[in-house]
């Protein structure tokens, strides 16, 4: 059977990817952020998954406003890296895990999540930046296959935090019922507090972010109970991306251990954070 070995929550700010692509990680602006990633990256390099289920949102690249799926799962054998309007990131194409995708879609449907499927999907920074956070130097190929899971966080009304958490729980059950011996990592991406447009542009709410970083481990129900309006008010119009962390958290089994976390302001206009949790499994003692 497949199992979830760890969960990674991470911001997916495009400029974090650009800093890596352009060799700027040692610049004074970026060094503190990347130094903060260090211990998590070392641990993850020693705990390689076979597949990463990456929960993210598209940013006007693969999905336009013609059709806006609330939850979608990529089902392809591979995913091209999107040109978001300024050229493709120089990273390898993403290899899919179509069998796991199919399994997830069926199990999620049976759990009353009516999933949109994406057979062709160019993946944007929302997915590739978290992969780079995990693996900064992939060479010719990423070290794992990927199942993209997309959440609409751009068009209002977004799914509730509670529904995202429940989706995560259903994804966790589905992974654990997949009859192949696979190690799976689940990525919850986006956040933390940020707002790109309007007079509140530049909003950072460290108090909320710190609360969230703690509660994602100890009290996810509290975060699931917040309304989308709460997220927008506290974390900014784009900070609502944090609901995708709850998908990751829901997919973890009962016991987990925090391996590392880091919080840094700013990554361009965003509070950037990473939190890494080892999944200790149902029967384990924490």
């Amino acid at each position: 059977m497949a199992r979830v070995i760890w969960g990674l929550a991470t911001s997916h700010v495009p400029s974090i990817g650009a800093a890596m692509d352009n060799g700027k990680t040692e610049d004074p602006y970026w060094k503190p952020l990347f130094d903060g990633y260090g211990p998590a990256r070392e641990w993850m390099a020693e705990h390689r998954p076979d597949v990463a289920v990456v929960v993210y949102n598209d940013h006007a690249n693969a999905i336009d406003l013609d059709l806006v799926p609330t939850f979608a799962v990529g089902t392809a054998e591979s995913y091209d890296v999107a040109d978001e309007g300024w050229g493709r990131r120089p990273v390898p194409p993403v290899v899919g895990a179509p069998q796991l995708s199919e399994h997830l879609v069926r199990e999620l449907m049976d759990s009353s999540f009516d999933i949109t499927t994406c057979h062709r999907l160019d993946v944007d920074h929302g997915l590739t930046v978290p992969l780079s956070v995990y693996c900064p130097d992939p060479g010719d190929a990423w070290p794992c296959a990927v199942v993209p899971v997309l959440v609409n966080v751009i068009q209002y009304p977004q799914p509730t935090a509670a529904r995202c958490y429940a989706l995560g729980e259903a994804i966790g059950r589905a992974i654990r019922s997949f009859p192949q011996d696979l190690k799976v990592a689940v990525f919850g991406t986006g956040g933390m507090s940020h707002q790109l447009a309007g007079a509140r542009a530049g909003l950072i709410n460290e108090r909320f972010d710190r609360m969230f970083l703690d509660a994602i481990e100890h009290d996810p129900e509290k975060l699931a109970a917040l309304s989308r309006e709460d997220y927008i008010a506290e974390a900014g119009t784009e900070g609502i991306e944090l609901i995708m962390w709850l998908v990751m958290r829901g997919a973890m089994s009962g016991k987990l251990a925090r391996i590392h976390d880091t919080y840094h302001v700013p990554a361009s206009n965003t509070a950037a954070a990473l939190a890494l949790f080892e999944d200790l499994g149902e029967g384990a003692s924490a």
Binding site: I154, Q155, G198, R200, T237
Partner: peptide
Amino acid sequence: TKARDNYLLDLAAS
């Protein structure tokens, strides 16, 4: 044009 605090891309805006 002067910006409002927040812009939500709701269905009407969409």
